[in-house]
Nucleic acid binder design. Sequence first.
DNA 1: GCAGGATTTGTTATAAAGTAACACATGCCC
DNA 2: GGGCATGTGTTACTTTATAACAAATCCTGC
Lengths: 141, 141
Amino acid sequence: MRAAEAACRARKLRLTPARAFVLETLLESHQAMTAYEVLDRLAGAGLGSQPPVAYRALDFLVANGLAHRIERLGAFVACTHGGAEHAAAFLVCRRCRRVAETALPRAMRGLIDEAAAGGFAVETVVVEAEGLCDACREAGA
Amino acid sequence: MRAAEAACRARKLRLTPARAFVLETLLESHQAMTAYEVLDRLAGAGLGSQPPVAYRALDFLVANGLAHRIERLGAFVACTHGGAEHAAAFLVCRRCRRVAETALPRAMRGLIDEAAAGGFAVETVVVEAEGLCDACREAGA
DNA sequence: GCAGGATTTGTTATAAAGTAACACATGCCC
DNA sequence: GGGCATGTGTTACTTTATAACAAATCCTGC
C-alpha cells in the first residue's frame, strides 16, 4: 500500500479515496474479487453504490499496474509488485479463487517474436494457469 | 470438419445436429463468436432459440477440444487442430477479433514445474496475446 | 424389441458482469 | 479566478451466463 501510494505520487496519478479504498480492499482480500464484490465494499464504506464506481476504480488500478484482471474469473487481484512495469503470469485456484502472481517466463519472448514474424503485433499477454492450490488439493478436489 | 467427425466417432462422442452446426459455424466464421452470435445462427437454422442451447453446444465442443474459449473476449473459436490433445496459445486481434492459434511454447513447461514445486497443481493454462493483426495494423489502429 | 438408466434437448426464469451517456463537481495551471 | 482536464454520481441498459426441471432420445443388456 505504501509502495502504491509512492508509485502514484511519483507518476502524478491521483489515488483518490475510492481508488485507494478499492486497492486496500483487494490487498486485504486474499482472493480474486469480482467488480460487484468490490462494489459491495464500496457501498459499505459510503463511497458509491453503482457499478460504474467500482469499474472505474478497478480500471484505473489495472491501467496503472496496481491491480490485475484475472480473465478466467472475470475478477480482480491487487498486484504484488508495487506497480512497477512487469508482465506476470497467474496461478489461479479453481476452488478457492486464491491467485498467486509469478514472473512471466522469459520464454514468452519467443511467442511474441514469432507472432511479430507473422505480422501480428502483440501488445499484452495473458498467462493464467488454472488448477488447485496446495490447501485445496489436500482438502480434496 | 471431417477430422472433427472422425475424432468424435473415435471417442464415442455424440456430435448431434446442434453441436455439428455450431462447430461448422465456428469453422466458417474467421473470427471469434460470442455465445449469442452462435445462438442467432442456431435460431436461424431452427435448432434452438434459448441461451442454454448455445452454451451447451459450446461447452461440449470446448470440453472435447474441438473449440476454444477466448477468455479475453468471452467468445469462442473452432480449434484448428482437429481435436487432438494439445495446449495452445492464441493471438487475438483487438480490432477485428480474428484469432490465430499457435503452439504453446515448450517453455510453459517451466511455469508448470515451478508451480508444482510450490504446491500448485496446474490443470490448464490459458495463454492469450492481444494485439493487432497485420491487416488491422495497416488499416490504422 | 423393449425396459431402464444415462444423456441430450426445450423452456422459463433469473443471475452476474459490464457499459453508454450525461450532468455535476473538483483539481490544476496559468 | 477562468478555463480545461479529470474524476464522480446516477440512470438506464446491454451482454454474458446459469439454475432448474420436464420432455425427448439414445444406448445397452437381455
